[in-house]
């Protein structure tokens, strides 16, 4: 299996990369970790005419706090996020998901931003980002300065299976995750047949509490049980303002099971997946609550 021929460049600065991407138009693709793009090119599912390799732009490998948000740069690898103390301290959902992305070798190479941009409905990161209310920072070499950066809420960014809402010439430069205000916690539960397989079911849960201990903000999103990563807004809405309890989490679990639309396939029958969605939703919020209360 071999990719079709393409032009390759490895710019030395972000500005050069954005210019090259702008000139390449529809033919241009950013190459970061390449752990999805290269296999797709080998399988003939993608054939970009021009690859712009950003692996030399080490200034994009950051994971840092920025204006109260957690900012993850375009070259931060999955392994960097899994090893990050800052992520571990500030975001339970991200910290729980990072070690379960593919396998250790892929995590050494693949990037969070690349995975977010890829919009694979079976990808884990976009469920995490939907649950925690992340935004995508898109950059381009647009003529007018004010058009060079767009901040896109993740729910608007994910346009469909393998489809994002970037314009030609734009790249995902950063993913921003709001830092929890007050007590908060999160979890990502993934059922997989083996390490490296896609999720049979993935559930991302996020819970922030107000001063009285009630739910200030709930986030819930599902992997591999819908044609795209599914944000379960019904569950999020019914939990807001309520006192957290097993009964409340069971209601959210019912809403999640109702909202998803799994297919029966080699990873299991649809009713089994639906049952796992419900159980993992209960467990995810229970873990998030423990974390928010500083109990685990």
């Amino acid at each position: 299996m071999y990719p079709s021929a393409f032009e390759y460049s490895a710019p030395g600065t972000l500005d050069e990369a954005l210019s090259a991407l702008g000139e390449a138009g529809d033919e241009g693709r950013v190459l970061a970790g390449g752990q999805s793009l290269i296999p797709m090119m080998k399988l003939g599912l993608a054939a970009p005419g021009c690859l712009i390799d950003i692996n030399g732009l080490s200034e994009l490998s950051y994971i840092r706090e920025s204006n109260g948000d957690l900012a993850i740069g375009a070259l931060a690898r999955h392994a960097d996020v899994a090893a990050s103390d800052l992520v571990g301290r500030t975001n339970g959902t991200l910290a729980a998901a990072a070690p379960w992305i593919s396998d250790p070798l892929v995590r050494n190479r693949g990037t969070v931003c690349g995975s977010v941009a890829h919009c694979d409905p079976e990808g884990d990161w976009n469920s995490v980002m939907l649950a925690v209310g992340a935004s995508v920072v898109a950059r381009s070499a647009a003529k007018r300065r004010k058009n060079r950066e767009r901040v896109i809420p993740i729910a608007d960014f994910v346009a469909g299976p393998f489809t994002n809402s970037l314009n030609p010439g734009e790249m995902v430069a950063e993913v921003r995750v709001p830092k929890y205000r007050g007590a908060a916690g999160g979890a990502y539960l993934k059922l997989e047949r083996k390490i490296g397989d896609y999720a049979t079911v993935g559930v991302a849960a996020h819970l922030a509490l107000d001063a009285a201990g009630n739910v200030a903000e709930a986030g819930l999103a599902l992997t591999s049980v819908h044609q795209h990563n599914l944000k379960v807004t019904e569950a999020e809405a019914l939990m807001a303002g309520q006192t957290p309890s097993p009964e409340l989490f069971a209601e959210a679990a019912e809403a999640a099971a109702r909202s998803c639309d799994p297919e029966s396939d080699i990873r299991g029958p649809a009713d089994f997946k639906r049952a796992v969605v419900a159980e993992y939703t209960r467990r995810g919020f229970a873990a998030a609550l423990k974390q928010a209360r500083g109990e685990g």
């Binding site: 290269i38 296999p39 250790p104 070798l105 050494n108 190479r109």
Partner: peptide
Amino acid sequence: TSCGACTVLLDGKPVKSCTVLAVQ
């Protein structure tokens, strides 16, 4: 990108060399 038979160390870290371009 599944089996790891092609594993090499790239700058000291294990990666799957069937999923890295030589130019990289």
